[in-house]
Design a protein around this nucleic acid. Sequence first.
RNA 1: GGCCCGUUCGUCUAGGGGUUAGGACGUUAGAUUUUCAUUCUAGAAACAGGGGUUCGAUUCCCCUACGGGCUACCA
Length: 507
Amino acid sequence: MSAKVRVRFAPSPTGGLHLGGVRTALFNYLFARQNGGDFILRVEDTDQTRFVEGAEAYILDCLNWCGIAPDEGPHAGGEYGPYRQSERKALYRQYAEQLVEQGNAYYAFDTPEELEQKRTESPNFQYGHTHRNELRNSVFLPVKEVQELLEAGTPHVIRIKMPVEETIGFTDMIRGRVNFETSTVDDKVLLKADGMPTYHLAVVVDDYLMKITHAFRGEEWLPSAPVHLLLWEYLGWKNEMPQWAHLPLILKPDGHGKLSKRDGDRLGFPVYAMNWTDPKNGDLTQGFRELGFLPEAFVNLLALLGWNNGTDQEIFTLDELVEQFSIDRISKAGAQFDFEKAKWFNHEWIKQTSATDLEPLVIPVLRAHDIFAENHSQLKKIIDLVKDRCTLLTDFYEHSSYFFQKPAESTIDWPSIQPKWNAAKTDFFIAFIQKTQEIESWEAAAIEATFKTLIAEKGIKIGEVMLPFRIILVGGKFGPAVFDIAEVLDNQEVVERIEFALSILGR
RNA sequence: GGCCCGUUCGUCUAGGGGUUAGGACGUUAGAUUUUCAUUCUAGAAACAGGGGUUCGAUUCCCCUACGGGCUACCA
């Protein structure tokens, strides 16, 4: 009864990994870790027409980036493999045949075109008890004819035979009791004509074979639960059925409906965890990672989309989530995704991450703009100086580029200093250049003291030269404390920037 | 259309038979920052509607409305 907890994340390798997918994986991971269980990755690639090259490796990369790598899967092996359903193809047929023998399923020879025809004729057409006695299947056709069709190798599927007038239900860990009338559900295909199982058969067989104890999946699966329920029962595995939790959907930020990749494109935010390039047309879709999100922040914001710990705490580390996660605090209603809030999470995480931890992530951001910061202690100082103003990792470029590159003449905010410029100011800065040579220890406090002493000597107001000084150093009205900037820039660089400005202002 | 799930500020949510219905994002206003951002303080902002049950419902029940999901040989 107290079997080891085993959960699985079972994506289809059909493209980029969506926010909702990562959240499902995350909840699986949290639950497994919390209970000392196993977290399995199972690749549901039963639809050959939708298979996309590279998607599986990409999914794994995403999980690794998030820090929620599975224990078992095609990448890591395990006792319950193979972990790709395409490689398990041979396994499924016997179960489908068993169901046919038991009378819980049947062969159907109708072609997709025939069914399409039916559906256009009557919009509410369902392949179920109301129609199955008029279609080409082993329920309706004489035994002999069925045999002939089978022997002739006629393409066919196996469909579940939904019972009439039965109420079937289960207790969802999030929603409580959910009941269905079996007559309202159609006879789902279990085994396709190509011999591959559909999701319905595969999920039940594999969850059983892989000894899954708890199954997390999106709410969109709730309507097909009765099919799965029946399968567990017909296959004789009812007592081993996992407990289910149907997670609330992640919705579009505007209007309503499930969040999709298109919404991200339309509204200007990522939906995939990492960059994804469609191998068919080469289209690149930007991911959270490349946009400048920290994995800790990404995981944090996903966890809070539909879950909270009942307090005001919003910032959680993965370890804290593992410790505090609980299914009964998952909300029932769908959550609209809010990119502004997502950015807030990232900002918080950047602020609380040390310069040492940030450095390896900032280096590539700068390198993308041909800035090669080789002085590590200087770079860390810069990171500490500007990280409070960076919402995304990529913001480090615009907030620190002036440390590495002299502001270009064309970008300097001359209008803010030129109109009030005068000989006294020129005189002051020339004198300041001299004074900087006497500063023994080039630190913000010493620079400031020298600056202020000189102001007193020259009898000018500090307000008249502070802003010009800043603009001379960084090019505009922005940035951290000006003497901190001067310290990081170093003596010679400060002098050069002042001399350059004077050469323009003195004209 | 049918079936299923859901409904507290614009958004994410806490709460729960009697509360000034709390927090966060965003927003507004002030303060600090001799720059900008950060930060701080304050403000506006919600229980979908109707019936019950009850001394009392936002909270429990029912109905309606609205929203969402599913209704493929896709997952």
